[in-house]
Structure formats: C-alpha cells, structure tokens
C-alpha cells in the first residue's frame, strides 16, 4: 500500500495511505506534484503542513478515515446549489466526533478543512458553528465565541434600531 508522510506544523508525522490522503484536495495535489518531480516512483512523498498543528491534523485524518468510502463532493458545489448540504453527510459518528470539541478546536478544524480542501468536514463544522449562533442572544454569541463588542458611541443602539426596521418585513 502506497503511503504518504504528512507532517504537522509542530513536527508530528502521520503515515497515511495515499488513497486516504487523496480525499483531501490539497494533499492530492501535493502527492501528484511530488510524483511528477520525483525520479523514483517508489519514493514516499512527505508533505509538511505548516499551518495545522498535530492535534488538529490528527482530527482531520481521523475524519477522512471514517469517511474514506463516501463519494467525494465537488469543491465548487456550494456555488451551484447553496451550502445547506451538511445535514446530508452528517452521521451519528460525525455528531459524536464533534460533540466533545470546544469552539476553539472547531474553529481550527474549519481552517484546516478549508486549507486541506475537505469539503465534507468543512460543511459539518460550519454547520456546528451555525447551530451555536442560531436562536442565541447577542450576549450568548459573544460568550460562545469569546468576542467583545467594539462598537463606538451609540452605534450598537443605532444598529438595534436598524434591525427593528429590517424585521418589519
């Protein structure tokens, strides 16, 4: 079985099958580039991901392994039919996978899924964030995402007033 060595930003190496790695658009491109530039067809590709730390990379690879037999979603599907397709691919395993994560980890996972071009993972993580916003008050959203108001003067009050006009419809 052909393998590829994927190294995280903090130096942890993961040895995974090329078949599995190629489910990531980014890793697939890197493997193909390596093959074209390498004289030795048996050589093992080594890919360094400088923006993703080990804990997050492990989660991505774990998710890919679980979904290795799923059909690959086209990268530009969102542009064609909207982005509400996360539920379709979200299984009980996905829910259990995401359940223990705090939002900081989820945010890193979103960035990693985006960087590695893993659309299915990107969809379910964005869906999770969406669920953390929907139906929440402004203060609850701020607390959940560790955000602080940076409005000046009475800007927040003015925005609240604008919102009232918006909901006339």
């Amino acid at each position: 079985m052909a393998l590829v060595r994927v190294i995280s930003s903090d130096g942890a190496a993961f040895l995974v099958s090329q078949r599995l790695a190629k489910r990531s658009g980014k890793l697939k491109t890197e493997i193909e580039t390596f093959r074209k530039s390498s004289d030795n067809s048996e050589a093992q590709p080594e890919i360094r991901i400088v923006t993703i730390r080990a804990e997050i990379l492990r989660l991505v690879l774990q998710w890919l392994q679980q979904h290795q037999n799923d059909p690959v979603l086209p990268a530009n599907q969102n542009e064609q039919d909207g982005r509400g397709d996360a539920e379709m691919g979200q299984s009980q395993w996905d829910r259990d996978f995401l359940a223990p994560m705090d939002l900081g980890i989820v945010m890193e996972l979103i960035l990693a899924a985006n960087h590695l071009e893993v659309k299915g993972l990107l969809d379910i993580t964005c869906k999770l964030v969406e669920s953390k916003i929907t139906g929440r008050t402004v203060d609850e959203i701020r607390t959940a995402f560790k955000l602080k108001s940076d409005f000046k003067g009475n800007e927040e009050e003015q925005t609240r007033l604008e919102n009232r006009w918006c909901v006339e419809n």
Binding site: T137, V138, I141, R142, L147, R160, N163
Partner: peptide, 11 residues
C-alpha cells in the same frame, strides 16, 4: 434572518 440580525449586534 433573525440570527443574522443578532450577528449585526455582536461586533
């Protein structure tokens, strides 16, 4: 839309 309006008040 309601959630988007709430987001307008966050930051």
């Amino acid at each position: 839309n309601d959630s988007l309006l709430a987001c307008r008040l966050v930051n």
